[in-house]
Simulated assay, not measured.
Amino acid sequence: MWSVQAFVALSTLSGLGLAHLHADAADTQEPFVGWTREDLDAKWGTDYGFSGISTFAHLPHSRCLQYPETEYDIAILGVPFDTAVSYRPGARFGPRAIRAASARQTSFRGYNPRANLNPYAEWARIIDCGDIPVTPFDNALALRQMTEAYTNLAYTNVPAASSQSDIAYRRKPKLLTLGGDHSIGLPTLRALNKIYGNVAVVHFDAHLDTWHPAKYPSAWFDPNNPNEQSFFTHGTMFWVAHNESLIMENKSVHAGLRTRLSGIGDNEDDDAQGWTRFSTDDLDDMGLAAMSQSIVSHVGLDTPVYLSIDIDVIDPGLAPGTGTPEPGGWTTRELIRLLRAIDGLNVVGADVVEVSPAYDGSTEATALAAAQVAFEVLTSMVKKGMSANDPVGADVRDEL
């Protein structure tokens, strides 16, 4: 039983101890007065992989659509849209999952040995523009929202050049889109067309995505009416883009194909739209060097390219979190090596799509693969911008 005196004595000692601790803490605190921005950034501006708000690779965030004065060279843009899928939904959560999986990418540990550069610490201002708020209730409205958003962002100003040598790099901004289902390629191509004209598409996917909408049979729509809303799906968007004359014929490439077809007519339709096809098996038969060289030779180094990467090009045993899985795909390593081997292409926009994290399990394997693929694409964009052979950069240099 404690006596009253003992309790009072203990309380007094405890109070003195707490006061001492508070005094020590106060002594270690330094006021903000007199601190520079550099001081504050150095002390508080770094996140660990597991800390901080979830932006891609801890990049600075701006709601670019609300603040069009925001300047950048390359922007990450999420498009949480998945109501144009033909099988499993869930890719609306893809941008969130990819950002979370990119957490171990930081500017102070972003050096890419294969390219001998850190894309987050070079000439390019790279930011995360957040997501397009796309309606899940009306696909016609969603397509309008995405088209308007992409078009607005495509006209964003790039940062002012700090020197003449920088001007070669400061040209039109680029977007790397995190999907979302693959239908987001159509509004992107519409926006790019306004700036570059027709572009070539280098398309990594298990599926063609050039199908006529009537290949999804239905008595509810007129297959001869090209304005049907139901024609807009993640398997028909390149067909629609071809009909709108957005894609260069005889310059575009599919790679990684392995899906079942409705018949040989699917390939004939694809031929008529001017595509060249490489199957999954072609990588084994040709070898990686020959396939990558064939892609680059076919497309051309000066051609403006839209790089579109459906994560289902990877085998579902390695990337199960996707909406339309097809067994027998490439490994993550093979896809990344191919992307590295074609990094001389003039990529003016890119996407990584069809990550559906509900099917990914606890390993985050698909989201991790997508985050790494995005890192490789960013690296190639920055590396290309540093090249004296960059056709756009060369045009700017000629004007100096």
Score class of each variant (00 low, 15 high):
290 A>G: 07
31 P>W: 12
229 Q>W: 14
199 V>D: 00
124 A>W: 01
326 E>W: 12
84 A>Y: 13
320 P>S: 08
349 G>L: 14
386 M>I: 14
351 D>C: 04
178 L>D: 06
245 S>E: 13
19 A>P: 05
180 G>Q: 04
170 R>K: 03
67 Y>K: 04
307 L>A: 06
124 A>M: 03
90 G>V: 08
165 S>N: 09
142 A>S: 15
12 T>Q: 11
248 M>L: 15
220 W>E: 13
350 A>F: 13
65 L>Q: 08
18 L>E: 10
376 E>N: 02
251 K>M: 10
108 F>Q: 14
35 W>T: 12
62 S>D: 07
297 S>P: 01
61 H>M: 09
203 H>W: 09
105 Q>I: 15
38 E>I: 04
186 L>E: 03
395 D>M: 15
217 P>I: 10
87 Y>S: 13
9 A>L: 15
97 A>Y: 09
219 A>S: 10
135 T>I: 11
179 G>T: 02
176 L>W: 03
192 L>Y: 03
193 N>E: 06
106 T>G: 14
390 D>N: 11
387 S>A: 13
347 V>S: 00
24 D>S: 09
302 D>Q: 13
255 A>W: 14
195 I>S: 00
200 A>D: 03
65 L>C: 05
237 M>V: 06
216 Y>M: 14
117 L>E: 05
218 S>L: 12
253 V>H: 09
62 S>V: 04
307 L>R: 02
78 G>S: 09
139 N>G: 04
197 G>T: 03
97 A>M: 06
283 L>P: 03
272 A>V: 10
368 L>N: 12
248 M>H: 06
69 E>W: 09
127 I>W: 13
174 K>M: 12
173 P>E: 15
346 N>A: 07
350 A>R: 08
322 T>V: 15
235 G>W: 00
385 G>I: 11
389 N>F: 06
195 I>V: 13
199 V>H: 07
339 L>D: 04
306 Y>T: 03
138 D>R: 05
